[in-house]
Amino acid sequence: MVQFNDWCDCADEPVGNHFRRVLTGQTANRQTGVDATASVIPGHYASEERIARALARLGKPATAELIEGKLPTSKQIRSGDLGEIYATEWIDTQSGGFRALIKRLRWKDHRNMAMRGDDVIGMLEDPATHRLIFIKAEAKSRAKLTNKVLTEARQGLDKDGGLPSAHALAFIAERLLELGNEQLADSIDDAQLIDGIQPKDVRHLLFTFSGNAPEALLTAALKSYSGAIQQWAIGLHVDEHPLFVAAVYDQVIANANNT
């Protein structure tokens, strides 16, 4: 886990009926953030089982080559991937029980290509109704966050009537079947094809990772939303954003060679 609380200050604020949180990287604990992030990245690009099998069969040098071969070399793609990774990790650890069970970067067509479609989908079963509740997330990573970037994120969140896309849900269900989780795969199919997903069953997560302070921008984005879906805006602010991204991926490679 990334353990945001170990290297970030946290400030929460309600914005109307919505929720905003800003995580600010602590200068004194910057390396903690690099190390914590680097520790989870390999598992977002390749399954833990594949990495362990390669290590057992082929040894450390070949496993390090496998991991490094999965990592993007483009600075832009690294930044975008890391934003999506952080959104996934936040859902899994700080969203109140939602889980993003499929790490979709494992299925990239090419390591230096961005993936299309919904960035991250999280799920939680309502204990009272047994209906699935979904988080539909858009993750944006920029050295300088702007209103234009948040407008792009809003467009992504509002696609398909604000609901998770049929393609994204089918992709997740198929991957869950491959992993042997038939019950959850069936629940996704039931939600989509039998019960129908309603706006009340969805939360929107606007997740930003930026080198500038996101508070005012995220607040304005939440205030401008007039739809019926509950909104969460999470901003991770780390100074010298490009250098931090580079340090994280350098640490991943160093860790792989020292495994």
Rank of each mutant, 00 (worst) to 15 (best):
G96C: 02
F244S: 08
Y249K: 00
H130D: 08
W7I: 04
F19R: 14
D119T: 02
Q94F: 03
I188T: 10
P214E: 04
A173E: 08
K144S: 09
A52D: 04
N257Q: 10
Q3S: 15
E49G: 03
L222P: 11
R131V: 10
R20W: 00
M1R: 14
R104G: 11
E182C: 06
N29Y: 02
G69M: 02
L145E: 00
D239S: 15
A233Q: 08
A153K: 05
L176E: 13
V22C: 10
T151F: 01
K223C: 11
K159I: 03
A246D: 12
L205Y: 01
R131F: 11
M113S: 12
E48R: 07
I85G: 02
F207E: 06
A46V: 15
D189P: 02
S165D: 06
H237N: 06
A166E: 06
I41Y: 15
K144Y: 01
C10K: 07
V252Y: 12
L124S: 09
L163W: 04
F98L: 02
I91G: 02
T24P: 00
G97S: 09
G227M: 01
L222Q: 08
L184K: 06
R203L: 12
S226A: 07
D81Y: 02
A254M: 13
I135Y: 05
R20H: 13
L176M: 10
M123R: 09
G180F: 10
D9R: 04
F4H: 14
L124Y: 11
R142I: 04
K140Y: 08
S95H: 04
A247R: 12
L145T: 05
I41N: 11
P127D: 06
A139Y: 08
N29F: 11
R30E: 05
K223M: 14
A46T: 05
P214W: 12
H44N: 15
A216W: 09
F98V: 00
